[in-house]
Design a binder for these strands. Sequence first.
DNA 1: TTTTTTTAATGAACACTGTTCATTACTTTT
DNA 2: AAAAGTAATGAACAGTGTTCATTAAAAAAA
Lengths: 204, 204
Amino acid sequence: MGIIERKERERQEVRSLILEAAQQAFIEDGYEKASIRAIADRVEYSPATIYLYFKDKSEIFFAVHELGFEKLIYQMSEAVEGIKNPIERLRQQGYAYMKFALENPAMYDLMFIQNAPMEAIFENEEWVCGHRCFEIICDEVQQCIDSKLIKITVLEVATMSIWSFMHGLVSLKIRNRFKTFPQEHIQNLMSASVEQMIALLQND
Amino acid sequence: MGIIERKERERQEVRSLILEAAQQAFIEDGYEKASIRAIADRVEYSPATIYLYFKDKSEIFFAVHELGFEKLIYQMSEAVEGIKNPIERLRQQGYAYMKFALENPAMYDLMFIQNAPMEAIFENEEWVCGHRCFEIICDEVQQCIDSKLIKITVLEVATMSIWSFMHGLVSLKIRNRFKTFPQEHIQNLMSASVEQMIALLQND
DNA sequence: TTTTTTTAATGAACACTGTTCATTACTTTT
DNA sequence: AAAAGTAATGAACAGTGTTCATTAAAAAAA
């Protein structure tokens, strides 16, 4: 009997319809303003129906934030494709990260700033997509270490430093804290900071 | 007639009572859960009364975030007191920043992560406390540049880089994104990252 | 085919939220 | 003592996430 299989297929279809609607609503209005009712409206279901497919709002946006990671990981991989020099790979990966954040601020918000998606991770569960993304950064850093191109030698320290720097840069920008810099120079200053950081990292 | 002066004094008193309650509620429950009604309860006023003293919730928490800046600025200033070496001053200021963030995560949230306080700044208005805090960081960086102790020579680039790095470090921690590192080493890795960054910055 | 059982979807409600406004209570001025 | 001005509030509005008894539809059993 293929009925239970078809049912499961239909279930997954509805699920991803809701997810798509949630993603759209979230990108347009942000986490707080993307209400369950608004998402339900988009898929033409009752709000209560949403809860047959997701435990709560956190869980919906955990699923959405996973879509974000897919996209980020893809764009970072694409950015280093065909490049040999490890430093150049790291640079391009960094710019891809920055580009993603500035072009999809709402998504980045969900992935690295909002509490909600983390709350959806149950005890003793892993943050799988976070780890995957983290690892592809690690890989590039490891390459730089192995080829003795950067000054830092401890992988964890290097990765934490570089990631923190990049996250700080884009999240202060996204959250409007760079008002302290002359408005018209912010973009240039951000690029200059990235270049400066790479220069500092590099062995001479 | 000192009556209007007494009235003004009383008004300011009520205002700061509300502020204190808001701060407390916020520290305990975070921005979203710190409701106007909860704040009103704390000061034993009606919710509507709050709106005689503040335009909206954003404005309340803008005022609270200013209190946070006072504290942070004080603690950063205290941390460098009596220290001569510019690099050591920068290091201690950095650790003071980190300590503040980790000890007052809710406050830090309001100051550097939440959107709300920024929304309370009207068009063409300045983020005064942000600028003040930014300047005392700038001062230390400038000292390092002047005494040729660090490799970066452009003040804006240096400050943006250092601040972004520190903000990234503490905000990823606060928002639980360091799950990607072994739980028990996170604190050590964060300190090691700070030390590593100072080492990279320094001229040899 | 008809009846029973299982599954899916919903309307209505609950307990909240930020915010507004007409009404009341109190002070100051006339 | 009456009038004017100010401060505080109760009640309401429109919204939120979430739950649950009830209804509609589909599948299984008779």
